[in-house]
Design a binder for these strands. Structure first.
Length: 188
DNA sequence: GTTCTAGAAC
DNA sequence: GTTCTAGAAC
């Protein structure tokens, strides 16, 4: 391994630990319990976008086993709490995990289905929330109950899902590019 | 995860 | 010529 390779890895580590650093500052915590916290996503991909994270140092969904099922229930409880606190309705939100997370520390996404946001900029953003790259809470809970672990998606499957057409999440419309998708979402 | 930007797509 | 996407970031 070259020196350059190592400095790349260090650079990568610095952004991957962003969430862990964020929750160290109490000012960032919208809700905090003994075992989990709720923060606002720094780059929200919809009008409402929150993250629920355990205080326990769990890297990602791939570190989970059956013993974590009660923890997941607590994360889900806080997800419902933040929606209620914000005066929104549960039906207008999707709650779940990315099948291929980028940031360290397990985090549950709580995001409104409008996807109206200046931070929504790429096909990857869209498809990570609107294809099987998004694992709804209930689905992950059931998979973990059954298998005692969460399986990583094959690289080819991830690439296939990332390259899917930009299909609207609320109707049959398929956008030709990101700007037209964003314009369309505003109409809903 | 974002930023930046070369060059593809239009 | 401008818009848009996709890959490198040392």
């Amino acid at each position: 391994m070259t020196i350059d390779c190592r400095s790349n890895q260090l650079l990568k580590m610095s952004w991957q630990t962003g969430l862990i650093k964020t929750i160290l500052d109490p000012a960032n915590l919208i809700i905090s319990t003994d075992i989990a916290v709720v923060i606002a996503d720094k780059y929200p991909k919809a009008r409402h976008h929150y993250l629920v994270l355990p205080k326990e140092d769990i890297g990602s969904i791939f570190q989970l086993n059956r013993t974590h099922l009660p923890l997941l229930e607590e994360l889900h409880l806080l997800a419902r709490n933040i929606i209620e606190v914000r005066g929104e309705c549960f039906e207008s939100f999707q709650i779940g995990f990315h099948a291929q997370p980028s940031m360290q520390r397990l985090h549950l996404h709580v995001i409104s289905k409008d996807f109206v946001s200046d931070w929504l900029k790429t096909k990857k953003h869209w498809n990570s929330f609107n294809t099987s790259l998004f694992i709804p809470y209930e689905a992950l809970y059931e998979n973990l109950s059954k298998d005692d672990q969460i399986q990583r998606l094959p690289k080819a499957r991830v690439e296939e899902l990332l390259s899917k057409p930009l299909a609207c999440n609320q109707c049959e419309f398929v956008a030709k590019n990101i700007p037209s998708l964003k314009e369309h979402l505003l109409q809903h």
